Computed example of a mutant assay.
Amino acid sequence: MAGLCEGRVVIVTGAGRGLGRAHALAYAAEGAKVVVNDLGVGLDGLPGPDSPAAQVAREIGELGGQALAHGGDIATSQGAASLVAAAVDTFGRVDTLVNNAGFLRDRMLVNLDEDDWDAVMRVHLKGHFLPLRSAAAWWRAEAKAGRPVAARVVNTSSGAGLLGSVGQGNYSAAKAGILGLTMVAAQEMGHYGVQVNAIAPAARTRMTERTFAETMAVPEEGAFDAMAPANVSPLVVWLGADASAGVTGRVFEAEGGRITVMEGWRPGPTADRGARWTPAEAGEATRKLLAAAQAPLPVYGAR
């Protein structure tokens, strides 16, 4: 039986370790040809001595799949363009883009310097935008040339982007920005045959196993490992496959054996007097609205 992604060409960024590696292996297991991108950096975003992208590509090959390693910096225009070009030059096309690359530089806001803010924004948010823009340009050209496009993009946000996370102001802001980018891209690219969705995963990775050490601990032997990165990959594979036709502009939480459709911001209690409020009147009305509204979910790490 053919796999769910048989014949599709899939790009996964940050695929050398953790979630990205799990996604790359899962796509290959479903018949996809995979471009494995990883710059090979440490948790602080600085280059490391090994080549994790090559290791994962080799692992896929040993399992009978087809993969190409790409070590370019996808947070640069040149690196992002070369990533899409590598897929097209090697495999003839690109069908799915999984934006996953990222790292942490956690600080409380009063201690968060500009360089740490810029670095996290660059890799997470710019590192989503530039590969998306390069892939979208290729898909638009294909559509305008009259060739059918059934493209998929899976962006990676976080619970921190949905609710915020204490000590992660830069990361939370970047991950929230990815959600906004997802909504816009889904609308703009839909008529070219491109679907764009986002996930907010919870799994054991280099970024989470220290920050949330107790939650991410490996269970006793034989127990279900709810925090294993591979638990998230089935949803990512399905969203990147033809089978997900009609699903776009959505955000999903994925953790262990749980999948949740996130419903986002919706209008709650409203008051409209049909004229300008005074500040005191606005305050009185707002208090009444808040009393009728649902309380927000707590920020991660709140006490």
Rank of each mutant, 00 (worst) to 15 (best):
Q168P: 07
K288P: 09
I259P: 00
A145V: 03
A85K: 10
Y192P: 05
V110C: 12
V120Q: 07
A176C: 14
R147K: 15
T96Q: 07
A57Q: 05
S244A: 12
D73S: 13
T215D: 13
G256P: 00
V154R: 03
G264D: 10
A226F: 03
P279M: 12
H70S: 15
L162E: 13
A29T: 14
A135Y: 01
A302P: 08
V154P: 00
D242H: 07
A226M: 06
M216P: 00
L162Y: 05
R204S: 05
G146R: 05
G264P: 01
A203I: 06
E59Y: 02
L112S: 05
E214G: 14
G72Q: 07
I11Q: 08
L239M: 10
H70T: 07
L181C: 08
G246L: 02
L132S: 07
T248N: 00
D106E: 13
L130Q: 04
A137K: 11
A200G: 00
G274I: 03
Q66S: 14
T248K: 00
A203F: 03
A198P: 11
E281P: 03
E263F: 10
G16W: 10
R58L: 12
L112V: 03
P267M: 10
T286E: 01
A243H: 01
I178E: 00
A275F: 12
A28P: 02
P52L: 14
E114A: 13
E30F: 03
A228E: 13
S82Y: 01
D225S: 14
L297M: 13
D225M: 14
D242Q: 04
P267R: 14
A226T: 15
G71Q: 10
A137T: 06
E188M: 12
Y171I: 14
D116T: 02
V120T: 05
G161T: 04
G72E: 06
E221H: 10
E284R: 12
T215P: 04
F91M: 13
P131S: 15
A185Y: 04
L181H: 08
A22G: 10
V194Q: 12
G20L: 11
N231Y: 02
G193I: 00
E284M: 14
S158A: 01
A295C: 00
A241K: 06
G48E: 03
V88Q: 00
V237E: 02
I11N: 05
D106L: 05
K288W: 13
V12L: 01
N155L: 12
R8D: 14
E114S: 13
K126M: 11
P269T: 06
I259F: 10
V218S: 07
A101I: 13
S172E: 09
G164D: 05
F224D: 11
Y171R: 15
Q195D: 08
T286I: 09
E59I: 04
L290V: 06
P219Q: 09
A185G: 10
Q55F: 07
N155F: 14
A213F: 12
M1K: 11
P296I: 03
A213V: 01
A291M: 08
F129G: 06
G240K: 06
L235H: 02
A291R: 03
G177T: 05
V196R: 03
V299Y: 12
L163P: 00
